[in-house]
């Protein structure tokens, strides 16, 4: 498969300024050195707890934020430091689905204006006019095209998210960064939106970078999964490999927390409870960042940072003492 997106050494540090002179006293290391690739047509999921830098990563990929260091290549082209003007044509190819359908649609604009905005902003002419194109999009995402003149407040959360997805699809992007696309929705609606995203991927050949914390949704949708902890990727693997033979202790702990609907199956499982809070990204622990909460931590974990190594084919893990080591 072709590599659509290549990320290397990506960092985003937010400076913390204090005092009268706004002196820089530290930095929140939201994203601290990421390396991964996204292949054309696949879904890569970024999972992790709140505050691990997933959303920041998404915003860096769409260049809503400027990276502090590292490199982002899209179709072989370095887009890390492109100016706003130089990015504009590229915006057609990289689009974003937002987390909160209640704040991602302008309440003062009609659905037609919202979904038609990409055409106007990118000055794209559609063969049968913008209105027709918008109505086709609404139909594509499962909404009534006659709702063209309605306002967002007239729709439910799931419908609003569909409107947001229609807007995202307007310019036929190659890469879609979906920032928790279903986490703000009711569970019953989540399934519909997830299925819609999958159908659209099959139909239009889309590539997704999906940011999520719901491991069930991730398992359903993704081809590969990257687990993040405190701004770093701790494990990156094919979906089945990651869910069935997780290697990093953090992944193991995350997976053990996924609710199992079947009580009989639930009994046989060991639930790993992580103690303590996620350390502050202002001052992350040295070496392995997970050692403060890891039940397998040794002295080496506190002094030597484990590199992200390919322990099994296509299965990268950053741990000195991995679980389920390859035989």
């Amino acid at each position: 498969m072709d590599e659509l997106l290549t990320v290397s050494g990506l960092e985003k540090h937010f400076p913390v300024r204090r005092g009268l002179l706004q002196r820089r006293t530290g930095a929140v290391k939201a994203v601290d050195g990421l390396d991964f690739t996204v292949n054309s047509g696949e879904t890569l999921a970024l999972v992790g707890e709140s505050g691990c830098g997933k959303t920041t990563t998404g915003r860096l990929l769409t260049r809503l934020l400027a990276p502090s260091a590292g490199r982002i290549e899209f179709e072989g082209r370095d887009i890390t430091h492109l100016s706003t003007a130089a990015l504009r044509p590229l915006r057609r190819d990289i689009q974003m689905i937002f987390q909160d359908p209640y704040s991602s649609l302008n309440p003062r604009h009609t659905v037609g204006t919202i979904v038609g905005a990409p055409y106007r902003l990118q000055k794209v002419q559609t063969p049968q006019g913008t209105k027709r194109a918008v109505q086709d999009l609404l139909e594509l995402v499962g909404l009534n095209p006659e709702h063209y003149n309605r306002y967002p407040h007239e729709f439910s959360g799931g419908q609003r998210q569909r409107i947001g997805i229609a807007r995202t699809l307007a310019l036929k992007p190659k890469l879609i960064v979906a920032d928790e696309p279903v986490s703000a929705l009711d569970v019953s609606i989540q399934a519909q939106v997830v299925n819609l995203l999958e159908d659209l991927q099959n139909e239009l050949g889309l590539t997704y970078v999906m940011i999520a914390h719901d491991l069930s949704v991730v398992r359903h949708m993704s081809d590969r999964v990257a687990v993040m902890y405190l701004g770093k990727i701790v494990e990156l693997a094919e979906r089945t490999a990651l869910y069935e033979r997780p290697m990093h202790p953090y992944t193991v702990a995350l997976l053990s927390a996924v609710p199992i609907p079947d009580p009989r199956r639930r009994e046989g499982r060991e639930r790993i409870r992580l103690t303590g809070d996620v350390p502050s990204p202002l001052n992350p622990p040295p070496a392995c960042r997970f050692h403060t909460r890891c039940w397998k931590a040794q002295d080496k974990c506190r002094t030597v940072e484990p590199p992200l190594l390919e322990l099994a084919p296509g299965h990268q893990t950053a741990c000195h003492y991995p679980e389920n080591p390859p035989t």
């Binding site: 990289i94 991602s104 649609l105 905005a117 807007r167």
Partner: peptide
């Protein structure tokens, strides 16, 4: 609000 980001991401 995210609609501002949405507009930005559309260029």
């Amino acid at each position: 609000r995210e609609f501002v980001d949405a507009a930005k991401s559309l260029g």
